[in-house]
Amino acid sequence: MGLKIIVLAKQVPDTRNVGQDAMKSDGTVNRAALPAIFNPEDLHALEQALVIKDAHPGTTVEIVTMGPPRAAEIIREAMYRGADGGYLLTDRAFAGSDTLATSYTISLAIKKLMPFDLLLSGRQAIDGDTAQVGPQVADKVGIPQITYAEEIVSVTPKDITVKRRLERGYEVVKATLPTLVTVHSSAVECRSRNSKLTMKYKHAKTVSELQEAAMDYEGMMKTRPYLQITEWTADDLNPDSQSLGLLGSPTKVKNIENVVFKAKETVDLDTSEKDIDFLMRELIANHIIG
């Protein structure tokens, strides 16, 4: 039995590596100024999809991502690891979306791809850490959700059994398909690139990328249609324009403050025995320790 699996993924700025020009004056992220990576927990989700594909021949795994044109990079990256293809949702009308507007846009794409069996995504993305888009997409598509998944225990054409990682333990739940499962970082790591697949999909491109490419891909795309990454703009999704982007976002950024620590009177010490002994003597004398 083959399943149709969709993996929601996001290309994120590497927040561990942030420079001065990372934020725009309107309080949104200046993505152009940052190194972009495959959101780590979305890779964990991709692995869960690929494990199912390995066990159930005929299963297809496709990526859906929303972002600027260069976000096609993560679709290719997923294909190098075993995904079959993907959909890039890109349009200026999507800019400034909060999680609700993002989930609205993604849900329109998911509805176009119905019927499917399983929707997978990372629990949260490292640029916002909100964990909101997954459940909100599930709500808008009208399917149940299982968040914080550590392991997909079993899957049949009808249902799925999932172990969830909770703060102080775990639980195992069973749901009928289709459902959304969001995957926690405690799940197994994603496999690395497969060299054959990397060769096969090296030239996979979106329409926009083909237009900008230096070489002519027309012949190649005809003979190898699997290299075409689908690109959908707002028009392809037939949206209510009031629900997109900044306009469709109920949360607004009122202001942004750069972080400035209040100066405190600090005693600076070195590693000498004299300094350390002084510190410990003070701590004991002030009943902080001892």
Partner: peptide
């Protein structure tokens, strides 16, 4: 902002069309 609250609140906000700020 527990595994329960972060499971439930986004769904509630989507259903009611409300804004949500996490953590």
């Amino acid at each position: 902002a527990t595994s329960l609250g972060r499971d439930l609140a986004p769904r509630v906000c989507s259903t009611t069309g409300s804004g949500l700020t996490a953590d």
